[in-house]
Amino acid sequence: MNFSSDLIAHRLSHVESTARASLFAPAVRDKIVRYGAPIGCLIEHHQRLGRCMHRISDIFLDYETEGKVPLSGTVVIADALENGSGRFDRSWHAPEGGLWLALALADTFIPEISRLLPFVAGIACCETIREMGVRASLKWVNDLCFQNKKIAGVLCETMKSPVYGDKYFVIGIGININNQQFPVELNGTAECLRGFSGEKANVTDVAYRLLGKLGWNIGLLHYQEECLLKVGDQIWENFILKRWLELSDTVGRRVCYGFDVQKKPLYRAVVKEVNEEGGLVMLLEDGTCITEYAGEIIYIDDAS
């Protein structure tokens, strides 16, 4: 299957931009589209890969060996992964029927903005899944869950390009679409779109929708940076966080927190808010507050 960069660009400028006509002035939308345009400028599709992120490294090595600069916005998609992995040493079950992709972005953001990139990836996934009819929500930072089952996951890493040593962000995204069989250890904790909607979805269609939304939201992140640099030290409107909060069910939930919460849960708390930097502000059982900028949570109430 050949994915078309032009179709992604078309989705971004016509579908995504038009859908937000009531939120942003035409000139701002044009700017966001231009900022997001590189997403999918190079796109590879494979039937089977070890990991999409590894293929990105190989593409970059080829480019740099030939004296060329790797393209920011490069995307690799696979129908199935042999060694899909999540954070720490967790494996990621990635058979046929799901969408597994990696996207590389040059690290050109200022730190206040680059820390929002994992939020942006989560927003794009959540918008895509909701568009497919499943009202999933974001769990801080970017886990996609519906009825307490995980539908999609995002992995953000930073890599140094192999020859020139330039820094790139690599975003790995996995969405369970039609893959209804899960390993025993994931039973009851993971589900696919088809499991909720009852209908088989077109994986290619989901991929285009996701790439269009990644283009929009990454464009918005660039625009956010432009606004921040203009206002300097003054308070700025955080478009990304505002959108993330609309899509998330984390605030108000009772959670267990840990850096690696599955292996080493640290404490229980109630989420009070997500602060302007994206930090998770939690109220501990002793009445004090704690703010975390890394780590993960699991919900321990039954509000799902």
Binding site: S114, R115, P118, F119, V141, V154, E157
Partner: peptide
Amino acid sequence: SLMKRDTPVF
């Protein structure tokens, strides 16, 4: 590790 983004530090 910051906001669930892992960055190697050289």
